[in-house]
């Protein structure tokens, strides 16, 4: 479904990705783990088209999307809940969800809204509240719900568990599992919380300083002693 091949991305002079190859298939949850600054978020942003890679190709359903602008990429069915959530703080929760539905035209709005409220009932209670006043967990839920409003076929999630209480993390991971199993949503998930993410994922990749250093099924990676030492020690 999504194929990233030989991608090099720079931020100014700094090279963040050094030839990344990744494959995400229809219906999968794929996890990307790695340390801070490894380039995980850059990879997600490159897939979304902001920034564009200097070298390499990104294809989605066989279509080359490497040089498309971000607002066209999301129209093809790739939505992102980005690093730091980036909700629109001075808009209401409801307006944030309206923004999420920009690519999908108005006739799907009510249905998508109902599904979003079903997944995250708290957002319905908060719908007229300014998004900037929500708690961290609620903001994360809003960011995911906003991405889902466009009815994407591929959902990119960047560290949805960062800074959240364990209970909220569990809730969010359950939702990811639910939309994958029930709706067949394909998910590409970036996480530092490697244990939970790998348990959830069908397959995973490990990124080290702009390169993919390892890949395998979630279970293989969880059982790998190197990964246990680097990413899972002392965790969970």
């Amino acid at each position: 479904m999504l194929s990233v091949s030989g991608v090099h991305t720079y931020y100014g002079q700094v090279q963040a990705l050094r030839g990344v190859d990744i494959e995400v298939k229809q219906g999968e949850i794929v996890t990307l783990i790695g340390a801070n600054g490894a380039g995980k978020s850059t990879l997600l942003m490159t897939i979304s088209g902001a920034p564009h890679p200097q070298q390499g190709r990104v294809t989605f359903d066989g279509q080359d999307i490497t040089d498309l602008p971000p607002h066209e990429i999301v129209r093809l069915g790739i939505a992102q809940s980005p690093e730091g959530r980036r909700i629109f703080p001075r808009m209401s929760v409801y307006e944030n969800l309206q923004m999420g539905s920009v690519p999908s035209r108005s006739d799907h709005f009510d249905e998508a809204l109902e599904q979003a409220y079903e997944l995250f009932p708290i957002l319905k209670e908060r719908q007229d509240q300014r998004a900037g006043t929500l708690s961290g967990g609620e903001q994360q839920m809003l960011a995911i719900a906003r991405a889902l409003m466009s009815k994407p076929r591929l959902l990119l999630l960047d560290e949805p568990s960062l800074g959240l209480a364990p209970l909220v993390v569990r809730q969010i991971f359950n939702v990811i599992k639910e939309i994958n199993e029930r709706d067949g949503m394909t998910v590409f998930l970036v996480e530092q919380n490697a244990y939970h993410a790998l348990k959830l994922a069908h397959r995973g990749y490990v990124m080290v300083t702009g390169n993919i250093s390892m890949s395998g099924t979630g279970k293989e990676l969880l059982d790998n002693p190197e990964i246990r030492a680097a990413y899972l020690e002392g965790g969970h």
Partner: peptide, 13 residues
């Protein structure tokens, strides 16, 4: 409020 995010949700900035 956030120009990059606006483009990610499909706004032609």
């Amino acid at each position: 409020q956030d120009r990059v995010m606006a483009s990610l949700v499909g706004v032609n900035v």
